[in-house]
Design a protein around this nucleic acid. Structure first.
Lengths: 343, 343
DNA sequence: CTGAAAGCGCTTACAG
DNA sequence: CTGAAAGCGCTTACAG
């Protein structure tokens, strides 16, 4: 049972050394697992440390060793929103990154950044981390602009960045869009529409649209232009886009949404307009949000392999990836109820 | 423009001192904002630092100053689940805690812990943090058991812990349950049922049930016993509980669910059983999950003030709360569509 | 296999 | 207002 000593006094390795009858450097070696230390000595040191309630001071150890064993994770959010309004996708990614970092023996220093005063990315320079990972909404231009220089660095990885292509990690957007189109075709749908934000700054959505266009063209179908109406939230964008689509008079029986959050909004408008999903129209989203299981109807979606995404992000920030390695998390189709059974 | 010098060389405060023509201690004071330094000196030092691309080494600064300015946040999850399966409530809380910590000038060291090998709470002992905050699922007994001793400490705060009452932060469960009952009554419902996990280890759900019972009794209604069936996930528990309720033959026209995740499951079963929500039965959840906006029907729920919850957790871990202060985040009713308009 | 010494890069009394 | 010195608590060559 650890003896806590005087609570106000921090016991150092010198005191452990004294009690164990060894040199302070031996304490350090014994406790850090140095293989040159004999079992007997290590045991003696361990006991002394336990009795004194000694723990290595991580700050001192890291200063001396020059390592941090920490990864900084920056989650970019929109200004003025509550934690409940953050797209669950970013939380899922955050969880996956923390898990992957932990798996590699790294700690995660997390910060949510939305406004100027919070923008901070100098974790490596100030020796707080060995690398930084940027994730979050691609709609906060100021935040990404602030971190733009960072994105070029070898010890930085990002997801959702509107810039840079070579160090950006992402879902396999092309494969995902193709899966969606194929699933819609299999259900007998032919008039397919893409709803999503393909503005210049959104590489991932542009990739999804490009692949959607390719896949429809190959099937002898005209997928047409992407439908998108701006709005405060992805949900509102989905609602407005679906409304525009309906009002346009353009015939459609299948929708591929660039992300689940927009799909939820679209689903609402479709229902309000008396369109039966999946009978009249099939809808497929992208992101694999867990809440899609409870939407009305439950949303069929393209889900990235989050665990793999976390590993890709961590490996990239740590410089562990082979050059030329593809930074795309594989995707799979999660079948729920927004597309009718294949005919 | 910062001159990066030789990339492999880390520039120290000594070099900045030399270039600025001052003592190294003056560099430290100037850069840390010490008020005794004149503006002219500070400016001179700043310029030299910028030119050399100098940044203070946080490890050294913290070691010397004895501070960490860091809070450790432990998120307890269930073993063997993906990041997408974690209850969004915990993510929302995590985001709120990080925001509150940042607001107070603290960094957040985050770890997700689900299995034995990951259990670690010695952040203060190893001088990695000034306090620790434990949140996450209350269903991982092994994790909470491991951290049990921690929970008694002054520098530790928790949410969702099955143990200890005095330092546990939580929603104002009693007020929330009362709001739910009153809303159900206002819609004209009289046969109210509580669905939720009231087993010994879940203080928050027991509080919600106790208050539900009080409020129904005061209204001259017999709220009866809590309905609960176990299951792998909250969603499955909600499904099974709703099924049991229906099969029991007990008449009901209003349901208060102990958490949104269970309410989603219940909603599904109700729909499958041809029960119309909100016409035949009103349903209210607890937690304020954002995805409730897309459920079928959208879920009326009791939402805690997340921002306040984050502040309470941080203040508690930092010892900033006045003794005797109530650690309950205020709640409000988010009106959606699972309860009909008040009559 | 272990000891003695140096030093990581800062902050902070202590002087003046 | 600034300088000179000490020292936070470790890790790691360098010896033997």
């Amino acid at each position: 049972m650890p003896n806590q000593n005087t609570p106000s006094h921090r016991v150092t390795s010198f005191e452990v050394a004294e009690r164990a009858g060894v040199n302070q450097s031996t304490v350090s070696r014994a406790l850090s697992g140095d293989s040159s230390i004999t079992d007997a000595t290590r045991e003696k040191v361990r006991r002394a440390a336990d009795e004194l309630g000694y723990r290595v001071d991580a700050r001192a150890a890291r200063l001396r060793s020059g390592k941090t064993r920490t990864l900084a994770i920056v989650v970019i959010t929109k200004p003025d929103i509550e934690a409940t309004q953050i797209n669950p996708f970013h939380y899922n990614l955050l969880g996956s990154v923390c898990a992957a970092a932990s798996e590699k023996g790294y700690q995660s220093l997390v910060s949510f950044q939305s406004v100027e005063e919070q923008f901070y990315g100098d974790f490596v320079e100030t020796r707080q981390a060995d690398g930084v990972i940027l994730i979050g909404t691609s709609t906060n231009d100021a935040a990404w602009a602030h971190h733009r220089a960072l994105l070029e660095r070898e010890d930085v990885a990002s997801w959702g960045s509107p810039y840079v292509d070579h160090r950006r990690v992402d879902s396999d957007n092309r494969a995902g869009a193709r899966m969606a189109v194929e699933r819609l075709l299999a259900a007998g749908h032919r008039d397919l529409v893409f709803i999503g934000d393909t503005r210049q700054t959104q590489p991932q959505f542009r990739e999804r649209f490009a692949s959607f266009s390719d896949a429809t063209r190959e099937a002898g179908i005209d997928g047409g232009k992407a439908i998108f109406e701006d709005g405060e939230t992805r949900g509102q964008q989905g609602r407005r886009s679906a409304r525009t689509l309906i009002d346009s008079g353009r015939g459609f029986d299948g929708i591929f949404c660039s992300c689940d959050a927009m799909a939820f909004g679209a689903l609402e408008v479709l229902r309000e307009s008396g369109v039966d999903v999946p009978r009249d129209v099939g809808v497929i989203g992208f992101d694999g949000l867990g809440s899609g299981a409870h939407s009305s109807p439950p949303l069929t979606t393209v889900e990235p392999d989050f665990a793999r995404a976390g590993v890709l992000l961590v490996d990239t920030a740590l410089g562990l990836t082979k050059s030329g390695e593809r930074r795309r998390a594989p995707v799979r189709l999660v079948e729920r109820a927004s597309v009718r059974t294949a005919t």
